[in-house]
């Protein structure tokens, strides 16, 4: 809702200029080196991971270099500590046990110790994140909207009352995977008229259409405010900008801090914790692909 007008303007601009694209060579100098620490812990019981890499020249053609030999742990406010072990296959990838999970309402702290500046002393990085309570999704229904190729998914459920809610909505079909930044939208509390999301509808942008028997997966991630902002910033900075609607570019925020006084190491990335709920529905209706010309 908040960005409705901007989205519409974006569509207008895109419709006017979509075909005028050309490659361009851009040369910049290399910037300062950063340590990138990124990962998350969810309420799902599974193996989670933290990835630690170096930043790189923007126009490098190589994958990021992992940073090994770090001590990585995640602790909760009750003093429980999970120690992560480095993957033998991927440098800089640190794994939890296979049954790790976060508990709603708790605060978690990521601690990373690693010698970045090769002075023989490990630098200490830390990040904290709380786990919001999840939104209940009782059931979902697939409905038709005004456009034949744009179905809506109707969700029944409830939004927690004791917190600020940032709900990231995801949809996928059959075995398609969706990344954490592939959300349909991030919805804030004020969007809803009341706490019960009784029949809240979201447009379902499935580009290649839906056939009878397709399984539609639906997921609602409950982010905390910081991670919601981080997610939106990542999406903004990795998408095209335009002079009419875009703010000046800016670096994405990070919640990872270097805790050693007197040391200077640049750090980026994010440690987050979130809860989520899923639901699925098997389609009994055909929806044509979005881009078909004969509609």
């Amino acid at each position: 809702m908040k960005n409705t007008a901007k989205i519409m303007l974006g569509i207008l601009i895109a419709s006017m200029v979509y075909s005028c694209l050309a490659p361009i060579d851009v040369a910049t100098k290399n910037g300062d080196a950063y340590v990138n620490i990124y990962g998350y812990l969810t309420t799902d019981t599974t193996q989670h991971h933290i990835r630690i890499t170096y930043s790189d020249y923007f126009f490098s053609a190589e994958p990021p270099r992992g940073i090994g030999n770090a001590l990585v742990s995640i602790s909760d406010e009750d003093g429980n500590v999970m120690v992560l072990t480095e993957s033998p296959d991927t440098a800089g990838l640190y794994l939890t046990d296979c049954d790790a999970y976060a508990i709603e309402g708790k605060m978690y702290t990521l601690n990373v110790e690693v010698d970045i500046d090769n002075d023989g002393i490990k630098e200490h990085f830390q990040a904290k994140s709380d786990v919001p309570y999840s939104a209940k999704t009782d059931s979902i229904v697939l409905t038709s909207g005004k456009l034949p190729y744009l179905p809506f998914v109707k969700i029944y459920g409830e939004v927690p009352q004791n917190q600020k809610n940032y709900l990231a909505i995801y949809c996928s079909k059959n075995n398609d995977t969706v990344g954490i930044f592939d959300y349909l939208m991030i919805v804030e509390d004020w969007y809803f008229d009341n706490s019960n999301i009784q029949g809240t509808e979201f447009p379902l942008f499935i580009e290649d259409g839906i056939e009878i028997g397709d399984t539609l997966h639906f997921r609602v991630n409950s982010f905390n405010q910081e991670f919601a902002h981080f997610s939106m910033q990542v999406r903004t900075e990795t998408s095209p900008s335009n002079p009419i609607l875009s703010s000046p570019p800016a670096n994405v925020i990070s919640n990872v801090k270097l805790t050693d006084e007197g040391k200077s190491v640049n750090v980026v990335g994010f440690f987050s914790t979130f809860s989520y709920k899923t639901a699925f529905r098997i389609s009994d209706t055909v929806y044509p692909p979005m881009m078909r010309n004969d509609r």
């Binding site: 910049t28 790189d56 923007f58 990344g179 930044f181 670096n251």
Partner: peptide, 22 residues
């Protein structure tokens, strides 16, 4: 314009690290 100088990877996406403004 503010261009990226560096980058880091998150979830398969390359996130830019920018130059000074403009």
């Amino acid at each position: 314009v503010t261009y990226p100088l560096g980058r880091y990877q998150i979830e398969g996406l390359y996130v830019p690290i920018y130059s000074k403004r403009n």
